[in-house]
Amino acid sequence: MKQTNPKKSTPPLSVSNLSMRYHHKPVLTDVSFEIPEGKTIAIVGPNGAGKSTLLKGIMGLEPIMDGEARFFGEPLTHKRLAIAYVPQREEIDWDFPINVFDVVLMGRHGQLKLWQRPSKIDKEIAQHALEDLGMWDYKDRQISELSGGQQQRVFLARALAQKARLYLMDEPFAGVDVSTEKTIIELFKTLKTQGKTIVCVHHDLNTVGEYFDWIIFINARLIAAGPVEQVLTKENLNKTYGGRLSLLNDLTETMYRTQLNKAHDGD
């Protein structure tokens, strides 16, 4: 997927020939794209299209069958500190005994060695992150006492505290209130002026054109990727939401089941 990058700098994220599976079922097949720096990018597709899986694969949280993801031209391990990941809220045990400030401080742990504790500077960074999201007043709250929108803000503050250049977010707008949604949009704008890149799994087609500069359409494979005005077309939407290519799906599954991908020479 060629994209027009005026700066000609290395893209913050480039994915090439990425394939992932769950047991023998293919989830993503041969996904390749590059994204430009300093933009907001939505990953869009129907339920079960592999949007979250794509993010997890990119972040090394789930095994990749084939292909690779590069960050600023390097593998993930060389660029960890430049990338912040925001997991889905549902994946967390919100009963865990911890308060808001300590959760946000976790964002600083990538920089800390072994048993090192967060320093004064780390705490200031965490404070700024909370203030940016309007959550400083809640810093001593138990996370179980937060509303859905507040939980999401805490997660975003934690990602902010990482001081990254690329943000990967899994459904940050899912189940949040209107004011949180506005706060997140404001945050995106601020981050963009700082030249940061934001990639979001997004499910709301009504807002995708308004909130994002770029869209990556996915349904088990890459449908289209590019600037909103170019790719947000009826044709792409039909392809994305119109069901999968059953033959591609079935044959890939058979390939995994028979371990053909391993048996084939030259792999």
Binding site: R80, F96, M106, G110
Partner: peptide, 13 residues
């Protein structure tokens, strides 16, 4: 950190 959010801890390296 790991007990609270293992996947996130991984992404921190």
């Amino acid at each position: 950190l790991i007990a609270f959010n293992q996947a996130y801890a991984r992404t921190l390296g």
